[in-house]
Design a protein around this nucleic acid. Structure first.
Lengths: 146, 146
DNA sequence: CACGATTGAGTTGTGCACAACTCAATCGCA
DNA sequence: TGCGATTGAGTTGTGCACAACTCAATCGTG
């Protein structure tokens, strides 16, 4: 019984890991046309929403550190989708903004959410509930990780 | 309304991605003592359960291909935790088995599940439900990804 | 039996994630 | 004001994940 109980967390963690990778596969297929990876798409999503953001803020929104973001943003810059410039009032900070091409990509990206939603096969209510459960779980795990 | 709906899948996917990484952080801390990464721990879990397995079967159980498993297993072999040998009746197949050290590690690993379970802050019933939802989601996504 | 197709591991190359680190800019307080 | 601490980006190194590929072993069908 204790053993039974102890196995559950392994299963939940593995289920999470597997679901996350399965989502990655679906996004990979859908994003191939746009030449984007899923994390790159996430960065563009926050930029489409906010216009421009410092690297620091992007990291907070997406839960990513500079070790991940710096090379990723460099690739987006090379692809001509974003610009990076040092902030005038704090030379430590770098502001990321969309280029014309980056802005234009938004229209093509607007077809994506529906395709993903269809792939999940879930009704919106279930999606909302699952999302909230996962958010609570993430918060609990963040609190537990020192 | 349509817009509202279309955002949900992004949120569920991001929530999943974030939760998976948050779990990774917790496991990283807990597994540091054992010198293991989370995927390496998963491999040992299936070996502890089954004794020995062909690489192919490990890949099916963990949803990983040889491009991921081959170097991972090589690291576990270098660490002295597993052995690899070509199967006698099918020379293409490689059988992975635990060494004494790999077997012995199980005892130290048995403390881990409880620590993880505590970190989630979830009652067992919630864990079961979430696990099942995620499993169904993964199945739906797998069916959608060609 | 022979030979083309398939299968199982492994390799190579790209990108993400994170730890540990560097370095310059900024902050804050004695 | 001056200087030690902190902050924001970036770099380096390790490992996972996956695509695309190689290669040998095995299978299956004529």
């Amino acid at each position: 019984m204790s053993t039974e109980y102890l196995r559950l967390d392994q299963q939940i963690c593995f289920a999470l890991h597997a679901a996350s990778r399965a989502f990655g596969n679906v996004y990979r297929v859908v994003l191939r046309d746009l030449g984007l990876t899923y994390p790159q798409y996430l960065v563009l999503l926050v930029l489409w929403e906010h216009g421009e953001l410092p690297v620091k803020r992007i990291g907070e929104l997406l839960r990513l550190d500079s070790g991940t973001l710096s090379p990723l943003l460099k690739r987006l810059e090379t692809a001509g989708l974003v610009d990076r410039r040092r902030s005038a009032d704090d030379e430590r900070s770098v502001t990321v903004s969309l280029t014309e091409a980056g802005l234009a990509l938004r229209e093509r990206a607007e077809l994506i959410p529906r395709r993903i939603a269809e792939a999940t096969g879930l009704p919106p209510a279930d999606v909302v509930e699952l999302r909230d459960r996962l958010a609570r779980l993430t918060a609990a795990l963040d609190a537990a990780a020192p």
